[in-house]
Every structure is written in structure tokens, then in C-alpha cells.
Computed example of a mutant assay.
Amino acid sequence: MLRQTARYTWIERKRRQRDRSSEQNSAASRPEAACCSQLSLLSAPSLDVPHCFLRRDSKAIELRNSDSSDGGIRKSYMRDLETSLLRAFVVTAECGSVSKAARRLARTQAAVSMQLRRLEDDVGVQLLRRGPRGMDLTEAGHVLLPYAHKILGLGASARRALSGQTVEGRIRLGMIEDIAVGSLPKALQSFAASYPGVALDLTVADSDALSEKLSSGLLDIVVGDPARIRIAPILAWQLPLRWVAARGFVAQEQIPLPLITFDGTCSWNQKMTAALNSVTRPWRTALSSTNLSSIQSAIEAGLGVAVLLDVNIRRATMTVLEPADGMPPAPLVEFGLFMAEGKDLSSQPIGALWECIANELQIPQDDLASR
């Protein structure tokens, strides 16, 4: 009887060894086997369990005691979010479309879409949805976005710190309202996360006021209208305007076209009326305002037609008028980058800030002209 009991114990021990060997071989065939092997060697002794193996699901790596009757989950290790996936998510959120994000990241649209799907599979929630204005953030996407900025910013800061390139200081940036609104604040948020030691002071005003502040030494960098700023820009580029009206707006040819214009000495008004005069289209000024949000509200109310940059068009409530609608080609407007004396793009924080702005405004490098 004792001999039979001993033989049974030996057979049971062998069976358990085979089971553990089979589990280890199965784990080794998975992509995370190398990581799991290292984690098992490091963690198992500290847990004081006789036999451990690792299991990974979509969100965590779990260390289990194979001898426990209930599966014995001892500790769970949350997997890190991949920075390459977070970068694709952040850039898509800033650009508003996968195609624009792909151009900025120098990748194919399919590759960026796959990265976004992988990130959503990893976190287990939908982060982006297609809307009338492109890709919109879901509620979960809004939660993740500031964390993604911080993670990417801390990574860039760590690299600079390790290379002895920690940057501190202050940049005083001036911009006209047409550039400062829209999605540009997201780009400035990304810059602030990457350079936490740099204080960014933003001034939004018209080009005449920005020119005065720049000449007085109150601003370091200005983005504005070259026709209204007294010094020469170091870079200049053009962006197209669009004829914009409320959805459902119908322009009647027999009466003057009602225009919504920017008040004051705005070169856009001159370009807008010159384009209409070139096709002998009668017009009248229905409303003037110095505030962009007031212009946008007047357009949405159906009070008339205005010219706006692409980034300032509210696609859900506004429509772009084309030549088929009886409109002439919309004019181009010029912008310039101006620097205070002693400042240039070669300094790291200023150069990085300009890169964020240029990417957000989607300025092709071929369009930039040095002065």
C-alpha cells in the first residue's frame, strides 16, 4: 500500500511538471515571451511562490501562481502606452483628419489609421469619430489628449536633459486673431509640454498694434500682415481665403451681395471687394466688426458673406461658396514671421515653437520665402 501511494505521488509530480513545461512553451511562442521571461525571473522570488507563469491580456500582464486552485493572480502590471501610437493620435487630433496627419508624420494614411486602431484596441475605447468637420475626439479622446501631450513632452524633455540641452527662458509671441484661434492652441499646448522650462506669453492683436509692440521691444516673435508691420519679415507665405456663408444661404444676383467685413484698415477687405469688382458683382457692407468671433456669428446668422481662412470655418454651420455659386476666385493673403533684434530661428525654443506653428497652419515648406 505504501509502495502504491509513493508511485501515485511520483506520477502526480511528473504530471504537474509536464503541465508547467507546456505552459512555459506556450508563453514562449507569444511576442511578449522575452519580456515575460525577464519579469518572471525578477518578480517570482520576491513573491515567494513556488511556480509562476505570466499571462498577458489586452491591457495588463499578470503574474500567476500555477499551484493555486483559484488561478492565484498575485500582481498585475499595466502595459505602457506606445509613444508612436500616442504621437499619431495627437497629430490627428490637431490636424482634424488622418490624411493631414499622415502628411505631417511623413507616413501613409493607411499606416496612421492602423496606429490609431492599435491605440484604441490597447485602451479599449473609441478615441476618434468621423464628423462633419473631419475627425472629432470622443469623450475618451478628450480625456487621453492632455495625458498624451504630457507623455510625449516628458520624453522630449528627458532626451534634452540627458544630452545636456535643457532649455529655459521666456518667449513673447504676438499673433493676429485669424491665426491665433482655431486649433493653434493645441500646437502651443504641445510646445509647452515639450519645453516645460520655457514660459510662453501670447499677445493677440491687430498687425498695427503688434508692429508697435515689436518695435518697442515688448515682443520677441510676431506672426502678422507684412503690409501692416514696419519691419521686413524673415519668412513669408500665402494662404487662401474662402468665400463663406451660412448653410442654406442663397445669393440673389439681382440685389447687391451683403458683405460681412473686418472693421478698420484690413487688407482683406480691399482684396475681397477688388475680387467682386473684377466680375462686376454689386455688393454692400451689411456688417463690420473687429472681432473674429462676431464675424463668425454673423455668418452663421445668415447676415451675409465673408472671407475666412480654412482653419476658421465652422463646417457644421457654414458652407464655402464656389464659382458655381456665382463667386469670383477667392483671394490669397500673405503672412509674415517677424523677429525682434537679436532673435532668430537657430535658437532651440524659438525654432521649435515656429515648427509647431508651421505644422498647425499646414504651411508647405516650398511656400516659405526668406527675406
Results as ranks from 00 to 15, higher is better:
Ser216Met: 15
Gly217Ala: 10
Leu218Asn: 14
Leu219Met: 08
Leu219Gln: 07
Asp220Tyr: 03
Ile221Gln: 14
Ile221Arg: 15
Gly224Asp: 07
Asp225Pro: 03
Pro226Arg: 05
Ile229Leu: 13
Ile229Thr: 04
Ile229Lys: 04
Arg230Pro: 03
Arg230Ala: 13
Ile231Ser: 14
Ile231Asn: 11
Ala232Ser: 15
Pro233Glu: 01
Ile234Val: 14
Ile234Asp: 10
Leu235Gln: 13
Leu235Trp: 03
Ala236Ser: 14
Trp237Pro: 01
Trp237Cys: 01
Gln238Leu: 04
Gln238Cys: 08
Leu239Tyr: 01
Leu239Ile: 09
Pro240Cys: 07
Leu241Asn: 06
Leu241Ile: 06
Arg242Ser: 12
Val244Leu: 04
Ala246Gln: 13
Ala246Asn: 12
Arg247Met: 05
Gly248Ile: 10
Val250Ile: 09
Ala251His: 08
Ala251Cys: 11
Glu253Val: 07
Gln254Phe: 00
Ile255Tyr: 03
Leu257Pro: 02
Pro258Trp: 04
Leu259Gly: 07
Leu259Trp: 04
Ile260Gly: 05
Ile260Met: 00
Thr261Ala: 02
Thr261Arg: 05
Thr261Tyr: 00
Gly264Met: 01
Gly264Pro: 00
Thr265Pro: 00
Cys266Gln: 12
Ser267Glu: 12
Trp268Met: 06
Lys271Ser: 13
Met272Pro: 04
Thr273Asn: 00
Leu276Gln: 12
Asn277His: 02
Asn277Leu: 09
Val279Tyr: 03
Thr280Glu: 14
Trp283Asp: 08
